[in-house]
């Protein structure tokens, strides 16, 4: 399984289009030093709900399904994450267990950063921290939309269509 994405973020031509990755060269160089690249087949589970957060996973290529599960094994898909998204951010930052399960639905390339390295990287690089705040805000908007659709049977999208 080969990936078209280069191993160095500095050589990646896709990064200007990706919110987290579009960082200044000095920040990217620091990020390169803390990340580990992984090529994973589809159906790989990056992390499971209830597991302590080991780090974050930047999805360079491929998609991942984010879901929650009940004790009886009933699943509810929250959303499908695409390339450029950072998975496991909220658990890594809050130091809590993962609230969702992330499973790859394509053969994917992923950059993993350990929690400890991520926290010091974000403390040292304000630009990256601002990007993370923006990403988390977007994630939160999507999560609230999901709460709305599950709890009240509507979503922003359906409201827009209706209006």
């Amino acid at each position: 399984m080969e990936s078209a994405i280069p191993h160095s973020c500095l050589d990646c031509t896709l990064r200007p289009d990706r919110l987290f990755c579009d960082l200044p060269v000095s920040t990217l160089t620091a990020f390169n030093a803390v990340k580990s690249d992984m090529v994973c087949p589809r159906n790989t589970v990056l992390f499971r709900e209830g597991q302590p957060a080991r780090g974050v996973f930047v999805l360079c290529e491929g998609r991942a399904k984010l879901s929650v599960c009940s004790a009886s094994g009933k699943h509810l898909t929250l959303r499908v994450a695409g390339p450029g998204e950072v998975l496991g951010l909220s658990a890594a930052l809050s130091g809590s267990d993962h609230e969702v399960t992330a499973e790859l639905i394509d053969n994917s390339q992923v950059a993993m950063v350990k929690r400890k390295d991520l926290l010091s990287f974000l403390r040292e690089h304000r630009e990256a921290c601002l990007h993370v705040v923006t990403l988390l805000s977007q994630d939160l908007h999507i999560a609230y939309d999901r709460v709305r659709s599950v709890g009240l049977g509507r979503s922003r999208r359906s409201r827009t269509r209706a209006s």
Binding site: V68, S70, L76, L78, L89, S90, A91, L93, S94, S96, E99, V100, V133, L136, S137, D139, L140, A143, Y144, R146, V147, V150, G151
Partner: peptide
């Protein structure tokens, strides 16, 4: 924001 996201996931579940 992370805490709020965790809460929202908890709510969906």
């Amino acid at each position: 924001l992370s805490e709020k996201y965790n809460n929202a996931c908890h709510e969906v579940r």
